[in-house]
Simulated assay, not measured.
Amino acid sequence: MNQASDPHATHGSPLGQATTYADHYDPALLFPIARAPQRERIGITGQPRFFGADLWTAFELSWLNPRGKPQLAIAHITVPCESTHIIESKSFKLYLNSFNGTAFADAEEVKRRIREDVSAALWHGEAVRASAGVRLIGPDAFDQQQVQELDGVNLDRLDIECTHDHPAPELLTAAFDEQPVEETLTSRLLKSNCPVTGQPDWGSVQIRYAGPQIDQGGLLRYIVSFRNHNDFHEHCVERMFTDLWARCRPARLSVLARYTRRGGLDINPWRTSHPAAAPANVRTARQ
């Protein structure tokens, strides 16, 4: 069962509903969704075998200074994957828009409010065991923001036949009887759908691994097989990681997806088999 068929996952959220925008700061707008039910559907119970984070970029953040003058920033928010909940993206957009008509002392206060509010929502009533990271980029630094494609061998060069449009892990194979390799593979052909509205989510994916060499044609067909899959970005990447780990048995593995923005937000989940520094939150050309 995918997320779209779970009536409880987004019940009460603003996703897919007509919405009135708040004109004053309101942290109650954040809508948490538990990670555990979706993880259980792909065989993850208890402590996951991966580490990582969800890297959010918010392009529509504004507030007022004490004299009522609008201020602007781009926000990078890092959500630890060990949190018990994710935050539904439309609710996050509504939350950020609630800053528009509210005066704050300075950017540091805005940053602190976002960190505290998001962290509380991610743990949804439990003690906060890992806080969200927040970085604000002011207008003076806008022209320093880079556009960079994911590095690695481009799978999209392959001339293959694609016959699956829902996740098909049986397409994944690896050369277990040959010498292990270490390589990075990328594709811009990732597409999935919002589990509530059915709207398309477009992305690029990067797979770094060490271990038996993964068949590139099968991997590309597998990536394309998400084309009509209904799920949140975070869960799609966790499904990819879990399938690759089980079917190809790498010694090390990381999966990063960078999805195009919607409503001024992009969400870029990253999962890795070993503790490591998070990748730089640098947008691709489509973002």
Score class of each variant (00 low, 15 high):
Met1Tyr: 04
Ser5Ala: 08
Pro7Asp: 11
Thr10Leu: 15
Leu15Glu: 08
Ala18Gly: 06
Ala22Gln: 05
Asp26Ser: 13
Pro27Leu: 09
Pro32Gly: 04
Arg35Glu: 01
Ala36Trp: 00
Arg39Met: 11
Arg39Gly: 03
Arg49Glu: 14
Gly52Phe: 03
Asp54Thr: 15
Leu55Phe: 07
Ser62Ile: 10
Trp63Phe: 10
Trp63Met: 07
Leu64Met: 12
Gly68Thr: 11
Leu72Trp: 03
Leu72Met: 06
Ala73Thr: 08
Ala73Arg: 05
Val79Pro: 00
Pro80Ile: 14
Glu82Leu: 05
Thr84Ala: 02
Ile86Thr: 03
Ser89Asp: 07
Tyr95Asn: 05
Ser98Phe: 03
Phe99Thr: 00
Phe99Ala: 01
Thr102Ser: 15
Ala105Asp: 10
Asp106Arg: 05
Asp106Gly: 04
Glu108Thr: 13
Ile114Leu: 13
Asp117Ser: 07
Val118Gln: 06
Ala127Ser: 13
Ala127Asn: 13
Ala127Ile: 14
Ser131Lys: 07
Leu136Arg: 02
Pro139Asp: 09
Pro139Tyr: 12
Asp140Lys: 15
Ala141Pro: 07
Leu150Asn: 00
Asp151Leu: 13
Leu155Thr: 00
Leu155Phe: 00
Leu158Arg: 15
Asp159Glu: 14
Asp159Lys: 07
Glu161Leu: 15
His164Gln: 05
His166Arg: 11
Pro167Gly: 10
Ala168Trp: 03
Ala168Pro: 12
Thr173Arg: 13
Ala174Ser: 13
Asp177Leu: 13
Asp177Cys: 13
Glu178Asn: 15
Gln179Ile: 04
Glu183Pro: 04
Leu185Ile: 09
Thr186Leu: 02
Thr186Val: 10
Arg188Trp: 04
Lys191Trp: 06
Asn193His: 13
Pro195Asn: 08
Asp201Val: 07
Tyr209Ser: 13
Gly211Lys: 03
Pro212Met: 12
Gln213Leu: 10
Ile214Arg: 02
Gln216Val: 10
Leu219Glu: 00
Tyr222Asn: 06
Tyr222Arg: 05
Val224Ala: 02
Ser225Leu: 04
Ser225Arg: 02
Phe226Glu: 01
Asn230Ile: 07
Phe232Arg: 02
Glu234Gly: 03
Cys236Gly: 00
Cys236Ala: 02
Glu238Cys: 01
Phe241Ala: 05
Asp243Ser: 12
Leu244Val: 09
Arg247Gln: 13
Pro250Gln: 03
Ala251Cys: 12
Leu253His: 01
Leu256Thr: 05
Ala257Glu: 11
Arg262Gln: 12
Gly264Pro: 01
Leu265Phe: 14
Leu265Thr: 11
Asp266Arg: 04
Asp266Gly: 06
Ala278Cys: 06
Ala285Trp: 03
Ala285Glu: 03
Gln287Leu: 14
